[in-house]
């Protein structure tokens, strides 16, 4: 069984270092891990160019099969949903995989002295994949963080504001949705497992961390603020994406 890993566009564009951390982690369990940096083409599909999408997804499928991957571990919920809709190769969610494999020992309970309680912004493309919601709560508890319940979570989650290309086609609505989403949470501290959601929560005036930052980064304490997302800065985002490619090639 050969495993592959794909981070997805938004994570590669915002956090090259965390992509590297995820690869290092997975390599401990799968030393022959293949790594793919590519785009699933979901935005192409979402703007209504289905034929072009099929061409792009076909290219991705060839890349994955050409790399000898039997099962692709995916960090992006948009990619995962697209891949499962298309159903041409086996996939798993990075978060479910991490819950199954277990966090590195040094991460366990590391936040036990932090009083931060997180609300979870569940990604909308995987709103019906409940095993992901359970895995994320489990991982947060393993880290030692408190988790607040929210009416609009799990299967009942709402979009962060960036879904469906709304951020491009209707930025005003996208902003209002992001703000509404931030205000719907009972705590000021938000955790997401999608880099676009993390960006959107910032746009909506919230304080949001990506789950990989909680796992591989410093413990979040009351009063801390997250680093602003690079997704708001196109030059930085493309530079990051190129840097992620280098990280993968050196991994």
């Amino acid at each position: 069984m050969t495993y592959g890993f794909m981070a997805g566009c938004s994570l590669s564009s915002s956090k090259p270092q965390r992509v590297g951390d995820a690869i290092n982690y997975l390599q401990q369990f799968y030393p022959d891990l293949a790594v793919i940096q590519a785009c699933c083409g979901r935005p192409t599909r979402m703007i209504g160019q289905e034929e072009k999408f099929q061409e792009r997804f076909g290219n991705l499928t060839q890349m994955i099969k050409g790399a000898g991957v039997d099962e692709l571990i995916v960090a992006c919920q948009g990619c995962l949903r697209t891949m499962r809709d298309e159903d041409r190769f086996m996939t798993s969610s990075l978060w479910v995989k991490m819950a199954e494999l277990g966090l590195p020992t040094q991460c366990l309970n590391k936040a036990k002295d932090s009083e931060v309680v997180f609300s979870i912004q569940d990604s909308c493309p995987t709103s019906q994949m409940t095993e992901i919601h359970e895995a994320v709560v489990y991982l947060l508890k393993q880290l030692g963080y408190g988790v607040a319940k929210s009416r609009l979570s799990g299967q009942n989650t709402l979009c962060c504001g960036m879904g469906g290309m709304c951020g491009v086609s209707n930025p005003n609505l996208s902003h209002d949705v992001a703000q509404q989403r931030v205000q719907s949470f009972k705590t000021d501290y938000i955790v997401t497992y999608c880099a676009s959601c993390a960006f959107a929560m910032g746009v909506g005036g919230g304080k949001a961390w990506h789950l990989l930052d909680l796992i591989f980064g410093d413990v979040v304490q009351l009063g801390d603020t997250p680093t602003p997302s690079a997704l708001g800065n196109p030059v930085k985002a493309w530079a990051n994406r190129y840097q992620t490619k280098r990280v993968i090639q050196k991994s």
Partner: peptide
């Protein structure tokens, strides 16, 4: 420019 494949075992 922005894509790459590291094959299994590379």
């Amino acid at each position: 420019l922005f894509t790459t494949v590291k094959k299994s075992g590379d």
